[in-house]
């Protein structure tokens, strides 16, 4: 049932994509991306509609790529034979996190753990741990419908973490969180990222600066920049718009990328 212990050929990278393309009809949402991700917290930054969510969905095996190749945990993503084993090792918080309102927090997290085919004996303990990790220990017995937006979002993070995933995909995880909760989530992500490949999609530049070891900027389905947060901060100058060095770097890199794209045409 589980994957063999010896590493698959591309095990060095948790995720490796080359010429990855996703089309919806005539529209190209992801346009020939070459990206690799290993352990650590990786930020996926870009304007709205840049293709971030499409990329996250493909990485989460929610929808298929239409071109190029993608290996997740060493396995080709189109490989149905290994899909189930790969999915056991994924954690995913979609942009629109749906949940059963009648379930309690604990029931929902345990239910997702069951869906991820965790051994039944491990489920109660694992659920309790992640619920405490997102600071909802005192709400574990409350119905989901009674929670505030920020609490629901934290349950979303908890369900993604419950199976100790090797790849953790969080699409806009800080939406609805108050400043204190955001600070806590960033710390949690840094902690998880020590052994896990965490990919955080966001349009909030300050999240990236605080939580991520490196950044990919996506624009119109292409990689506009890939590098460390320090490189991102250093890319901007006083003339670029933004309230922080990272924001100025982001606008500068985006502008340079667009200039290159226009020139290439």
């Amino acid at each position: 049932m589980s994957l063999p212990e010896q590493p698959a050929p591309d095990q060095a990278w948790h995720i490796s994509a080359s010429s990855l393309t996703v089309r919806y009809g005539r529209r190209i949402a992801v346009d020939g991306l070459d990206l690799t991700f290993g352990a650590g917290v990786h930020g996926l930054l870009g304007p709205n509609g840049a293709g971030k969510t499409t990329l996250m969905r493909v990485l989460a095996t929610a929808s298929p790529a239409t071109g190029g190749s993608l290996r997740i945990l060493g396995r080709p993503s189109g490989d149905r034979h290994h899909l189930r084993a790969v999915r056991r090792r994924l954690g995913y918080l979609p942009q629109r996190f749906g949940y059963y309102a009648r379930f309690t927090v604990r029931e929902f997290v345990e239910y997702v753990a069951w869906l991820k085919e965790m051994p039944a004996a491990d489920i109660p303990g694992a659920a309790q741990r992640v619920i405490e990790r997102v600071q909802l220990g005192d709400r574990a017995g409350h119905r989901m419908r009674t929670l505030s937006g920020g609490m629901v979002q934290r349950v979303g993070v908890a369900q993604a973490l419950v199976n100790d995933p090797e790849v953790l995909l969080l699409d806009e995880p800080t939406v609805g969180l108050d400043p204190e909760q955001r600070v806590h989530l960033r710390a949690l992500l840094r902690d998880v990222g020590a052994q896990t490949c965490v990919i955080v999609s966001t349009h909030l530049v300050e999240d990236i600066a605080a939580a991520c070891s490196d950044v990919a900027i996506i624009d119109e389905g292409r990689v506009a920049f890939r590098g460390s947060v320090d490189q991102l901060a250093a890319a901007g100058s006083r003339e670029d718009s933004g309230d922080s060095a990272v924001e100025r770097g982001y606008t500068a890199l985006l502008r340079q990328h667009r200039t290159r794209v226009v020139a290439a045409r």
Partner: peptide, 10 residues
């Protein structure tokens, strides 16, 4: 929940 539960192993 179809999006999230569409990515689980079971």
């Amino acid at each position: 929940v179809t999006e999230l539960f569409g990515t689980v192993a079971r």
